[in-house]
Design a protein around this nucleic acid. Structure first.
Lengths: 256, 256
DNA sequence: TAAATAGTGTCTCTTAGACATTATGGT
DNA sequence: ACCATAATGTCTAAGAGACACTATTTA
């Protein structure tokens, strides 16, 4: 390991970091049809994408996709680039998570990782076999990733933090839209929320979302060009009204 | 500027960063007594602490306190250390804000800054003249800092982001406690919230905070050892009940 | 007693929450 | 006709929001 030093204003020499990578916790919601006699919602599962490391350190273990930031790009750009290079995903929702800098977290040296999380739709992963040359990639449920796999570096911590953050965001923002088509039924929305936050229970969900003043504005009914309400019976016998997110996100306060 | 290079797994050489500092947006709430004939709440103002740079780059301009992370500490530790070294503050609330990595943001080289924000009480700043040797420090309102001062680096962006985040947190978490004594009146709490988030208006604040089920639990009445309610007439003629924060923070959702 | 802030009464309209009921279309 | 899911009806208790009113202390 080469130790590089930098000179500070008071003349002391300090080592500089050996690299600042961006690591990406890439979530997707898989959709699997249920074999039932009648139409029904598909089974959805939250999955995280991991890559099996081929070289030292942690060779053979699963790790987050990522790579070093270059001098002429921001860390966000690096994350976007690595997401594309390593998983073939170009697009989707990419957001900053946090910095991971505990001394000794990377045996290669002093490496300060910036973590991101990405939310992508399942179809964006279709070409991942082509995109990654010889990298073994896998989709795992959060439970598998956290409990069954041995993960490289501090990536277990990062995944836990990302999972907590996405749960939080699912309830407080409209990121659910990242996992839904432009138009969706309220049952679909409810299922997406519950898939990410299993504790979420709201018996009167449909009514509350459609008929209370404080929630008016986060969704609107989907309509065709003539203003006629759009509905779908893809997942049910009786057609369900389709909705879309507006760009309004209500502000919440614990005091009001 | 010395360009340092690192060798990646495929043999290419990459430059490594010249430093990863922690910069701190230090907020405090100043309290100034009003000269009135009767007792009244003091005037509170949200202030941010800045340091005047003495050397290149941006010599003479105001900047956030901060400094380079060392190899045997985490970035959080670096922030804590710099907060103490540069402002004399040891304690208070220190939380991560984000990473600032736009190419060219620092003329000294490739420098990726991690920003924190700190909330400290006014008395913690009393010894700052002693703590900083010859550094000129100043406390400014957000408006002064953002509109009147020329700030070094991208520190204006950082302060704006920190301000937005503290406003958000003030409404969604109980960080108000960082600006209040252990026991406080509801008027004080209301004033603190409004000082940080001027848009916050809640005519029935006292009633809502004390008598609605969903808010029960974030505050509790302060009582002495005999269980008798504590009150204070420090800021008013009629004594006001004192409250304290519990450690409960309610979870909010835009859907419920 | 006047002033100032703390805190409660009261009224109306909306919402929460729980269940029951009706609606729609496919098998 | 039956089933599954969509959507509405209904009822009670709680909360929002506005405003008036009472309470407690000091000058």
């Amino acid at each position: 390991m080469i130790i590089r030093k930098n000179r500070s204003k008071n003349g002391k020499k300090y080592r500089t970091p050996d690299g600042v990578p961006a690591d990406i916790v890439m979530f997707t919601l898989t959709k699997r049809e249920r074999k039932t006699v009648t139409k029904t919602l598909p089974i959805r599962e939250l999955k995280v994408m991991l890559i099996r490391r081929r070289s030292w350190p942690y060779a053979g273990m699963w790790a987050l996709p990522g790579g070093f930031c270059r001098e002429n790009e921001s860390i966000y750009d690096a994350a976007k680039r690595e997401l594309k290079e390593e998983t073939g995903v170009d697009g989707g929702h990419l957001e900053y998570l946090g910095v991971y800098s505990a001394p000794g977290r990377d045996p290669r040296g002093w490496i300060i990782s910036n973590a991101f999380y990405a939310l992508v739709e399942e179809w964006m992963l279709e070409h991942r076999q082509a995109a990654d040359d010889a990298e073994e990639v896998g989709l795992f449920t959060i439970q598998e990733a956290l409990e069954k796999l041995e993960l490289a570096f501090d990536h277990r911590d990062i995944i836990m933090d990302a999972y907590r953050k996405i749960q939080h965001q699912m309830l407080q923002t409209t990121i659910a839209k990242q996992f839904l088509p432009e138009h969706f039924t309220l049952s679909e929305l409810y299922q997406v929320i519950q898939t990410v936050v299993p504790e979420f229970k709201e018996p009167n969900f449909i009514r509350k979302i459609t008929s209370t003043r404080s929630r008016r504005g986060i969704l609107e009914e989907a309509r065709d060009e003539n203003g006629k309400p759009l509905s779908s019976n893809q997942y049910s016998q009786r057609p369900a009204q389709l909705y879309r997110f507006t760009d309004h996100i209500p502000l919440l306060s614990i005091y009001t």
